[in-house]
């Protein structure tokens, strides 16, 4: 046993050290960096200060945080709404079709994120298909292109994360015991009431997982605002990037990152603990039953 443990430590050590050096240490460094002063020509002065955090909660950056949250929130609501109904439609399809439908719903997720986003530039730009199509329909001068607006960013986020919502909502729907719904209908509930009182509450874990995922990845998103929002339009991820690479204010960038990472981690942890609780409850139900 002792020998096995020794060998196991030898096997674990290289990967473990790698993760410590390139994941744990960098994350700790961000935590520390935010409390230092910015040097006059960029770089860092090692004097303790809280002014970076004062700046974060200053109107400019707090405003960017709020607008990022608003965009991420809107994208989340739309993605969850569409994704849930898609998952519901798949889960109520004939059993033999379900794996295929699910496979094709998730397939786009396997292709490159940049390319999926680029596909919308192709569709939305001023010489693009949508504007061309509206001209062909005879709308005078065509509808204006929404590319490089907030709507385009939201659309891109919804498009990119929809497959994940479908997947996470499908899981509880497929597991759901059909007897519950039948019992409800037999007892005289309308289809809508059955949906509202039985199906929807039972699918909450899937909806929550999908929503948290979309929100977390949207609020910290860097690619979609840069591409579909044009340069004019900034979300917090882009601002952080600029602090590190163009504005050269690393401590402020670190402080902004810390707040962003904090928001993300809190949401992910709430979701993880909620999921754990629902699994615990399920086990308990099985034991009781």
């Amino acid at each position: 046993m002792n020998f096995k443990n020794k060998m196991s430590s030898v096997l674990i050590a290289p990967a473990f050290l790698w993760l410590i050096a390139l994941m744990v240490v960098p994350c700790v460094m961000i935590l520390v960096l935010g409390f230092f002063q910015r040097g006059i020509y960029g770089g860092i002065e090692y004097n303790f200060t809280l002014e970076n955090f004062q700046l974060v909660f200053d109107s400019l950056y707090a405003g960017i945080f709020l607008s990022s949250a608003r965009i991420a929130g809107t994208a989340t609501i739309i993605a969850v709404f569409i994704g849930y109904f898609a998952a519901y439609a798949i889960a109520t399809s004939p059993k033999k079709w379900q794996p295929t439908l699910l496979f094709f719903a998730v397939l786009p997720f396997w292709s490159n994120y940049l390319i999926r986003t680029y596909a919308w530039i192709v569709l939305l730009n001023r010489e693009g298909l949508l504007v061309g199509f509206s001209k062909w329909l005879g709308i005078d001068g065509g509808i204006p292109s929404i590319l490089y607006t907030e709507s385009a960013v939201i659309l891109g986020l919804v498009y990119n994360y929809l497959p994940f919502v479908i997947l996470s909502c499908y899981a509880p729907l497929a597991r759901m015991n059909p007897d519950f719904r039948e019992a409800s209908t037999d007892l005289g509930a309308s289809n809508f009431t059955t949906f509202r009182r039985i199906t929807l509450p039972l699918s909450v874990p899937g909806i929550a997982a999908g929503a948290v995922f979309v929100f977390v990845l949207s609020i910290g998103n860097f690619i979609t605002p840069a591409l579909l929002g044009g340069g004019r339009f900034q979300m917090i991820g882009n601002v952080i990037y600029a602090q590190f690479l163009t504005a050269n204010d690393w401590p402020l960038g670190a402080a902004l990152s810390m707040v962003l990472i904090g928001i993300m981690m809190i949401l992910l942890m709430i979701q993880a603990s909620a999921a754990q609780r629902s699994i615990g409850q399920k086990n308990k139900e099985q034991l009781d039953g």
Binding site: L19, L22, M23, M29, L33, N221, F244, L260
Partner: peptide, 24 residues
Amino acid sequence: SIIFAPMIIPDIVLAIALLSMFSM
């Protein structure tokens, strides 16, 4: 948790952390 973390941490977080470490 250390083994699982890289699969859960959003890319942007790891990217920023690594960038700041390399810069520092």
